[in-house]
Design a binder for these strands. Structure first.
Lengths: 152, 152
DNA sequence: CTCGTTGTTGATAACCATTATCGGTAAGTT
DNA sequence: AACTTACCGATAATGGTTATCAACAACGAG
């Protein structure tokens, strides 16, 4: 499987630039991360990785996710229950998160108009913005409907 | 000191409604919380409370902060380092957070136009919004200037 | 190829904020 | 006064994350 070549190159470049090494574990973890659907926790990724290479330790997964974040391949998403998840970052445009507080589904949404207002707002307060997180909490249509129905 | 009568009434009402009790500890913690500047952690509040009543335990402060949140008097703020802080909610209009990643200063800002766009966005995806958090990360003017200066 | 340096790894201990447990206490009710 | 039940403080437990450390592997110099 030669998918995700781009991401592998990015990682290799980042490692080379920092004088770090390109190891089998890091590649295994990267592949597992890229093939998984977005928004997984370190532990969930560890479970996937373990199923492919039982010898990889949990600490390595934590370390490597941090590495991906520094390399610009992943981003931490902080949920409101104080848990942390990681999502793909490369080749994914910036987006905000719509989170259903009943089923915990996460929908990625985009609203350029909001971005523009944010920049202007920050500017007015003398801030140089370099990042932002917008989390919208609500109840999705499915959950609303199953809540309304009598059998629950 | 008979300040913050409003908040005390809100708490009393909430407790009565739920069949809970209005205790000295809860009043002490509420006063400490209200007199402190916004955005403190449970442990910071515990330190303040302890200085007024050494007998109050840490668990009680945690429990009571949860209570304030349920009663609509406080709100949890999740910082990007995964720490949790509490801010006053009653009589404070909704606001977003501009956070300096150098000095950790938090500025409360407001932008009604953003709120409107958020509602529309959620609606388009079938969500019933009940809450949202917007965190803008950047570097404030002060930190930018002291970074630029040679003595650092 | 060998040695030495240094980044990497897995196992595990440590950490730390938060939560659960529990025995005792106090408030409110009958 | 007796009873019920919420509440309290102390402390143990929890659980996600990080630090430690000895063994290991990659790489460069000689």
């Amino acid at each position: 499987m030669v998918i995700n070549n781009e991401e592998k190159k990015i990682l290799s470049n980042y490692l080379a630039k920092r004088g770090l090494r390109d190891t089998a574990q890091r590649e295994t973890i990267l592949e597992a991360f890229l093939q998984a659907e977005g928004h997984l926790s370190a532990e969930e990724l560890y479970d996937i990785v373990k199923s492919q290479d039982r010898s990889i330790g949990q600490a390595t997964v934590y370390r490597t996710l941090k590495l991906f974040t520094e390399a610009g391949l992943a981003r931490e998403v902080h949920l409101s229950d104080n848990s942390v998840r990681y999502e793909h970052l490369y080749n994914h445009e910036h987006h905000d998160h719509l989170i259903c507080t009943v089923c915990n589904r996460v929908v990625e949404v985009k609203e350029p108009a909001i971005e523009i207002l944010q920049s202007a707002l920050a500017e007015r307060h003398g801030f140089n913005l370099h990042d932002h997180r917008l989390y919208l909490y609500g109840i999705c249509k499915d959950c609303r409907e199953s809540q309304d129905s009598p059998n629950r």
